[in-house]
Design a protein around this nucleic acid. Structure first.
Ligand SMILES: Nc1ncnc2c1ncn2[C@H]1C[C@H](O)[C@@H](COP(=O)(O)OP(=O)(O)OP(=O)(O)O)O1
Ligand SMILES: [Mg+2]
Ligand SMILES: [Mg+2]
Length: 567
DNA sequence: ATTTTGTTGCC
DNA sequence: GGCAACAAA
């Protein structure tokens, strides 16, 4: 990997998470919400033929059913409002709370305004980053090694130190370590440990850090990274009007962990020496991949609660209980770089999906009803598909239908679809119906979902290809957003697959080398199987397999699927 | 009684 | 390539 070869030094990784994001998007549209306790709700978007609520309509909810809360302002959090509450419950604990309903289109929630806002953040960040990875609608991981090194070379050390320390929490400060002790569920709600931002706390520890960093190149680059993140956050706020929190560390896991320690509108630097301090009492479920059944199994298997406790378990015991993932697990609990994937350069989503659930009485009882809702879902997805063609010159090649039937059975059916640049809703609907028929969707349908995936570039113009190669291999800020270079789609009946076929292999290798590193990485779910019937409160829409990562030889791999020993 | 997106294992 | 399961925001 020519451009970013940095010898043995680890990269400088930043992580950005927007503050109460959907609320922030609504506040940017309607400043009356600024400073007020408010929340965004999804009204149970049910019946056929109800008028849609467009983004520009008055969407404040005052009476009737209030829907479920999906985002909460910090003012409302302080008064006890939480996600997952119903609007009515929120009104009980906080009568002043303003509830804004998400727009609807095609008879269902329409999240487009939030997606657009999230994309704008990614675009802005990408201007200064070596790699920009969209992690969710409101999160971005960034490789800022280049920008940090540039600052180191162009600004005086004292100036950098002053700028970083004035704006950045240290992850091993007393306040940070306290913030790390709360479990995932309480951390998500926001708590006082995260919020106090007086300067005496910020100063805590910085003097010594700056002294020691003089002879520590890794630390110095990270400190410069904190300045980069500070500037990027400022730019996001002034350009887009959203505040966010930031984290800086040598890998994605730690950067994200740091990011979550102080919110809203704050940032945290997690230097290598702080990792053990922070992880010692960190509840295991705060680590990525351990927030679900697997994390619970790890906890109960060893009788541990924190990452520090897990590290006390004799290594052979861990490896015996979790042969495939034991090494990864221990590296993760230690905050080791080898447990985290490199920051990928992917600025766009890999799939477009939507879905709707039909509870109880609303269960779909006939083929006619199923087809009606497939039509509504198709309408929305087609609109989004056209947007991808226009804005990003790419088209999906797989359609997946997912549905839940009466007895909780969940099924998916997929098939290739050729939409090119001018696909029609009818084309999507016909394919969707075919999939639904194969799945046996006739009556007792509790949920329906559609997904378009396997995005491929439209138009194998030599321009788009050489752009891809040229920019990437020079390593300079590439504006490519991460589509698969192999397999070009025909924009029109013409344009065959010539260049695409020629370059597919080389492009694949190149992308792979830029995006992947060897090592432990990844956090799958083998070696742990949930109890038989234990699939109760989970989501309905199985996502679409977006694409194959063209797996590099040695993963923790399939082959030896090992059942965990019973308790 | 939510709606998305991404990953991995297995065939 | 197709499908199920899991994890996350
Ligand atoms: N379970 C969910 N269902 C639907 N939408 C969700 C869910 N979780 C999160 N979202 C949406 C709404 C959020 O504003 C947005 C970003 O999530 P997240 O970062 O976890 O919280 P947040 O941005 O609202 O607050 P915070 O300031 O704590 O980050 O994604
Ligand atoms: Mg957020
Ligand atoms: Mg988030």
């Amino acid at each position: 990997m020519p451009p970013l070869q940095r010898g043995a030094l680890p990269p400088v990784v930043g992580f950005i998470d927007m503050d109460c994001f959907y609320v922030a998007v609504e506040r940017a549209r309607d400043p009356r919400l600024l400073g007020k306790p408010c929340a965004v709700v999804q009204y149970p978007t049910g019946q056929r033929g109800r008028p849609d609520l467009r983004p520009e309509d008055d969407r404040w909810r005052t009476g009737g059913p209030m829907g479920g809360i999906i985002a909460v302002s910090y003012e409302a959090r302080a008064r006890g409002v939480t996600r997952q509450m119903s609007g009515a419950e929120a009104k009980k604990v906080c009568p002043e709370v303003i509830l804004v309903q998400v727009p609807t289109a095609f008879g269902k929630a329409d999240l487009q305004i939030y997606k657009d806002a999230g994309d704008a953040v990614v675009d802005l960040l990408a201007s200064r980053c070596d790699a920009t990875e969209k992690r969710s609608v409101d999160e971005v991981a960034i490789d800022i090694t280049g920008a940090a090194e540039h600052l180191l070379a162009s600004r005086a050390a004292a100036e950098l130190g002053a700028a970083a320390s004035a704006a950045t929490h240290l992850a091993d400060s007393a306040l940070s370590v306290d913030a790390a002790k709360v479990t995932r569920s309480s951390a998500r709600q926001g708590h006082d440990k995260q919020q106090s931002r007086d300067t005496s706390e910020l100063a805590d520890g910085w003097e010594e850090v700056l002294r020691r960093a003089a002879s520590d190149p890794v630390a110095w680059r990270l400190i410069a990274g904190a300045v980069v993140v500070k500037e990027l956050r400022q730019q996001v706020e002034s350009t887009l009007g959203f505040t966010c929190s930031g984290g800086v560390a040598t890998n994605k896991v730690l950067a994200k962990l740091g990011c979550g320690l102080h919110k809203p509108n704050q940032q945290t630097l997690l230097l290598p020496h702080a990792a053990p301090v922070l992880l010692k009492d960190l509840p295991l479920d705060r680590l990525p991949g351990l927030g679900g059944d697997f994390g619970q199994a790890v906890k109960s298997r060893f009788g541990v609660q924190s990452a520090g406790e897990l590290l006390q378990v004799p290594r052979p015991d861990v490896l015996k209980q979790f042969p495939q993932r034991g090494e990864w697990l221990l590296a993760l609990a230690a905050g080791d770089d080898s447990a985290a994937e490199a920051v990928k350069d992917r600025q766009l989503v890999k799939s477009l999906s939507n879905g709707k659930t039909f509870f109880g009485e609303k269960r779909l009882r006939s083929l006619e009803e199923v087809d009606y809702w497939l039509g509504e879902l198709t309408g929305e997805l087609h609109r989004r598909y056209l947007q991808q063609v226009e804005k990003h010159q790419r088209t999906p090649s797989t359609l997946q239908v997912s549905l839940t039937l009466d007895q909780k059975e969940h099924l998916t059916r997929q098939q290739p679809i050729q939409l090119g640049s001018q696909g029609t809703p009818e084309q999507i609907l016909q394919t969707a119906k075919a999939c639904a028929r194969r799945a046996g969707a006739v009556s007792g349908v509790i949920s329906l979902g559609l997904s378009l995936s396997n995005m491929i570039p439209l138009e194998a113009s030599s321009a788009s290809l050489s752009k891809f190669f040229g920019r990437k291999s020079e390593g300079a800020a590439s504006k490519e957003k991460g589509e698969k270079p192999q397999e070009k789609a025909k924009a029109k009946p013409k344009e065959a697959n010539l260049l695409g076929a020629c370059f597919a292999r080389a492009a694949d290798l190149l992308v792979h080398r830029l995006n992947q590193r060897p090592g432990l990485e990844s956090c799958p779910a083998s070696e742990f199987r949930p109890a038989k019937g234990s699939r109760s409160g989970r989501g309905c829409f199985g996502g679409a397999p977006a694409e194959h990562p063209a797996g590099d030889s040695e993963r923790a791999g399939p082959g030896a699927q090992v059942e965990e020993a019973p308790l």
